[in-house]
């Protein structure tokens, strides 16, 4: 990739390109999701130390997706990536019930960020392939998503491993952004 392609991705082309930020706790499955979006192999994925960027073509949009590591010590750096974000994807490990509170707190903080004000948010309730996973409706209720009134939002049940629910999420993203551009 090199530094030069970072600059090329930084270029603003507001008509066609969307800058999408992919956040969530560590081990939520952000990088796996990113690779599935880019139709890449997901067999060898390790915790993300820094970030990954991939461009995905979908329905006339070029989605530049920034996947930032979710470990606690990296989270303070999320804010470096807030500017010019068109859409936020927040990934939750639906089977990790012990950390629902922590993930809820992080999400609330993100939604309070000035630089992300009004940015639509898509919440992926990931790992639906695991037997112990909570349903999307359960999570929506637990996180009190219905109280979000300052932006468009959607919760989508999915499994990055099986691919289930991903297409629906991408469709919601392009539809939402299409409406906003008009």
């Amino acid at each position: 990739m090199g530094l030069l392609s970072l600059l090329r991705k930084l270029r603003s082309n507001p008509d066609l390109e969307l800058r999408i930020l992919l956040l969530g706790l560590d081990n939520a499955g952000k990088t796996t999701l990113l690779k599935v979006l880019a139709s890449e192999d997901i067999t060898h994925i390790t915790p993300t130390q820094g970030f990954n960027i991939k461009s995905v073509q979908s329905k006339g949009f070029k989605l530049n997706v920034w996947d930032i590591g979710g470990q606690r010590k990296i989270r303070p750096y999320w804010k470096n990536y807030f500017e010019n974000t068109d859409l936020l994807i927040y990934v939750i490990d639906s089977a990790d019930r012990k950390r629902f509170e922590e993930t809820g707190e992080e999400l609330t903080e993100l939604l309070e960020e000035e630089k992300l004000a009004g940015v639509p948010v898509l919440i992926f309730a990931n790992k639906q392939d695991l037997l112990t996973s909570a349903k999307a409706s359960e999570i929506a209720e637990g996180l009190n998503l219905n109280s979000i009134r300052d932006r468009e939002w959607q919760i989508q049940a999915c499994s990055a491993v099986s691919g289930e629910g991903i297409k629906e999420g991408v469709e919601w993203m392009t539809k939402t952004c299409n409406n906003r551009k008009k």
Binding site: L3, Q49, G50, F51, K73, I74, Y77
Partner: peptide, 8 residues
Amino acid sequence: AHILPLTN
């Protein structure tokens, strides 16, 4: 050196 990737 750093907690996130190096540039130059």
